[in-house]
Design a protein around this nucleic acid. Structure first.
Lengths: 205, 205
DNA sequence: TTGTAATTTCAGAAATAACTGAAATTACAG
DNA sequence: CTGTAATTTCAGTTATTTCTGAAATTACAA
């Protein structure tokens, strides 16, 4: 295994732990990602120096993230693994899974809580905060889901445009005379004013 | 503490662990987030039932993420903590920190590796994969950084537009006659074709 | 200053997560 | 089918992270 490969794999081990992913799983995915051809479990055992059962667990984890491709070879009863050939596809799957695991449950909790009408007055502030959070998350993820439907070329063009897209927004204003009526209404964030009578000095950020 | 508050805080404890953040730190931030006024450390100790030193550690962690506001009260030597009042500001800081910790190091590693010219031929495939990853990350984070400069109103309008922005892109094509020359060139992802002579059957995804 | 309340640090304990080898299960070549 | 190679599961071990209480440090009201 070349130095560069080694370095790459090790880096993803380290980074893995800054994510929710554990070191070994990160290394496994990095190894698959850079392998010119699919690998079987035992090859991973050898190359990473970990146990067969650990590889099995790791593959199970990666599979649950929908990040694997599996293949088999005629006359060989082993199973082979690889990553999608296209980095955009990997990104798409990763984003989808993270959404489901890390965002959707919160959004759902917020929605449910905000629907409950038997709120005590003491919950007023809590509910306002929850609404703000809910609306922000919905706005961001809604946009993301929408944009993800675009074909690759269009999406890349959009991204390269960056903040230049504003020019187009201005154009839109001039042509149509303003923004179209938004589908989901965002309550204006009313700054809640001085919170208390205590004399408060801000320092730091 | 109301049921709803309790539920909210507990939820962020759970979710915290799906992130890189630990349960207690998640709970602490949720508590601060919904508190109508700043809290001192001992209030957090009481409300969450954890030790004073744990609160101290947690605050240190949150501080390193730049997510806290600190305040003091005249005639009271304790320090008080709260979150930014604006959820967009919280999001912005979170995104910035995650970028620095989880993305920038990888980008930098990839850049360095790709610059090394003494690559052996066996590294050819590795380098292509690294370039694909590098270009994707750069495209995404570049866009994000650009767009973040926009003022709140414009940004919200853009997000609400969702994939509707494509209409504007088409408009642009019709007016200017196509995309402007991109600043950073993306190599076409050449599908590497059949990888091996082995007879490969794909199954599953 | 000084005394003391508030905060941080840190070594060790408790809790959690990762990893292994052995045993059980699965799957397929012959 | 059958035998066996491949894979998964799982109980126990190791490693890592989180949390605590006690001691050290800091900071500020008087």
């Amino acid at each position: 295994m070349s130095d560069l490969t080694e370095q790459f794999i090790m880096h993803f081990g380290e980074m893995g732990s800054r994510w929710g992913i554990n070191r070994t799983v990160g290394q496994m995915y990095a190894l698959l990602f850079v392998s010119p051809e699919p690998l079987c479990a035992d090859e991973m055992v050898e190359r990473l120096g970990i146990s067969r059962s650990n590889v099995s667990m790791g593959l199970k984890e990666l599979d649950s993230w929908q990040l694997l491709k599996r293949s088999s070879v005629h006359g060989d009863r082993r199973e082979f693994f690889s990553t999608p050939g296209d980095v955009w596809e990997i990104f798409r799957r990763l984003a989808e899974q993270r959404h489901q695991r890390e965002i959707a449950p919160t959004l759902s909790m917020l929605r449910t809580a905000l629907l409950e009408s038997d709120a005590t007055p003491e919950d007023a502030h809590l509910r306002e905060r929850m609404r703000e959070m809910h609306d922000l998350i919905e706005l961001l993820t809604g946009w993301f889901r929408e944009v993800q439907k675009l074909d690759r070329g269009t999406l890349e063009r959009l991204l390269k445009l960056g903040s230049g897209v504003v020019k187009l927004l201005e154009l839109q204003v001039r042509i149509t005379g303003g923004a179209p009526p938004p589908k989901q209404r965002i309550e204006p964030t009313l700054s809640s004013g001085p919170r208390t009578l205590r004399e408060v000095t801000k320092h730091g950020n």
